[in-house]
Design a protein around this nucleic acid. Structure first.
Ligand SMILES: [Zn+2]
Ligand SMILES: [Zn+2]
Length: 234
DNA sequence: AACATCGGACACTCAAAGGC
DNA sequence: CCTTTGAGTGTCCGATGTTA
């Protein structure tokens, strides 16, 4: 196998050292959704996660429950760290070996209304295409550039059961402030068609003019075999 | 060729052990 | 108390099998 080019790291992998990216560390989400967990596939912090959106099962995208850690386990005396004592990896209990029957590998584009072409603006920074989280704890700096709209949730699937006409806010299930997908990522859900799902970006920064739109998904990247290198702009 | 499955490497959590 | 340690538990990479 040829040596992997560190400059082609997935968006979720980051170099430990800034200048010489000689070693990367895999980043994990705190809680994968149950679907990704069963499939042993990469999840993300957004709900629904991108993978569930891809499969059109965003309503079934719920975070998995973590088991409570056992208490009172005796450990014995510690040994001082040796020069090269690498801990052996533990064997998981195969929680992801269960049947993983997803409906279909439904590409995002096919989830769009049939009359709506799927375009993705090109020539924008990679961050443009990433899901946006509205400041969970007030720590994340704003993205440098946005599409003027974000979709707070995925619009209803056109083929799924319609939810009672005008969608009023259910007092029992108020809209989650939750993740905001860049409208570019789900560009087929036009804000003009789904205004109730789109919210303008906080700082009103306008979209640059002369944005070019390309078909989404691009050629074969959406195979999304989790080699999502779809962000390496050239 | 594209997609699904899953073995196992790797990452992370956090209570016990140890030191001050 | 605080820090260190490392077992326990979780995520998901990537090899392999299956299907179209
Ligand atoms: Zn997921
Ligand atoms: Zn999901």
């Amino acid at each position: 196998m040829p040596s992997p080019d560190p400059s082609f790291l997935p968006a979720d992998m980051y170099p430990l050292q800034s200048p010489p990216p000689q070693r990367t560390k895999r980043r994990q989400v705190k809680n994968a959704c149950t679907n990704c967990q069963k499939a042993c596939k990469k999840c993300d912090d957004a709900r629904p996660c991108l993978r569930c959106v891809k499969y059109g099962i965003q309503e079934a995208c719920v975070s998995s429950q973590r088991k409570e850690r056992k208490r009172g386990v005796k450990r014995g005396p510690y040994k001082k760290r040796g020069p090269k004592d690498h801990p052996s990896a533990f064997q998981p209990d195969s929680s992801c070996r269960q049947e993983t029957h997803l409906p279909q590998p439904m590409p995002i584009a096919s989830a769009a209304p049939p009359f709506l072409p799927s375009y993705l603006p090109v020539g924008l920074p990679a961050t443009f295409y990433a899901p946006h989280h509205p400041s969970k704890n007030g720590g994340a700096p704003p993205l440098p550039l946005y599409h003027p709209y974000f979709l707070s949730q995925m619009p209803p699937h056109p083929l799924q059961a319609p939810h009672n006409g005008q969608d009023d806010v259910d007092p029992n299930h108020p809209p989650q402030p939750g993740p905001y997908y860049s409208a570019a990522l789900v560009a087929q859900f036009s804000p003009s068609l789904y205004p109730q799902y789109a919210v303008p970006r906080p700082d009103q920064q306008p979209l640059p003019q002369n944005i070019h739109y390309a078909f989404f998904p691009p050629a074969k990247q959406l195979s999304y075999h989790d080699n999502n290198h779809a962000d390496h702009g050239a």
